[in-house]
Amino acid sequence: MCLNVTFLILAHDSVTRVCRLVEKILREDPDCKIVVHFDKKSGDEKYNVLKKKLSKYERCHVLANRISCGWGQWSLVEATLKMLRYAQQTCKADYYYLLSEHCYPTQPLSELKKHLSHHYGTNFIECEDSSWIKGGIREDRYLYWHFLNKRKYPSLHRWTYKCQKWLGLKRRVPDGLTIKFGSQWWCLTQEAIDFVLDREPRYRSFFKWVWIPDECFFSSVVALDKETSKPLTYYEFNEKGMPKVWSGVVHQQGFFFVRKYV
Score class of each variant (00 low, 15 high):
Ile212Asn: 00
Lys208Asp: 08
Arg259Ile: 11
Phe255Arg: 06
Ala192His: 00
Lys114Ile: 12
Val35Trp: 00
Val77Lys: 02
Phe181Trp: 06
Tyr144Arg: 08
Leu188Asn: 00
Thr80Cys: 03
His37Cys: 07
Phe257Cys: 07
Arg59Ser: 13
His61Tyr: 15
Thr178Ala: 09
His12Tyr: 11
Tyr86Ser: 07
Val173Gly: 01
Lys33Leu: 04
Asp29Val: 05
Glu111Leu: 15
Arg158Cys: 13
Asp94Thr: 10
Glu200Ser: 06
Pro174Val: 07
Asp44Trp: 15
Lys226Tyr: 10
Thr178Gly: 05
Cys2Asn: 15
Gln107Lys: 14
His102Tyr: 12
Arg259Leu: 07
Ser117Phe: 10
His61Pro: 06
Gln184Arg: 08
Asn48Ser: 15
Thr228Gly: 00
Lys134Tyr: 10
Lys150Leu: 14
Arg204Met: 09
Ala64Thr: 15
Asp214Pro: 01
Lys46Thr: 14
Asp44Val: 14
Ile25Ala: 00
Gly241Gln: 05
Val258Leu: 01
Val196Phe: 04
Trp132Arg: 01
Ala223His: 08
Thr228Tyr: 08
Arg259Val: 08
Phe257Val: 00
Phe124Pro: 03
Thr122Phe: 14
Ile179Trp: 06
Pro154Gly: 09
Cys69Tyr: 01
Arg59Glu: 12
Thr106Asn: 06
Tyr261Ser: 02
His251Thr: 12
Val250Ala: 05
Glu227Met: 13
Val36Ser: 03
Ile179Tyr: 04
Leu99Val: 12
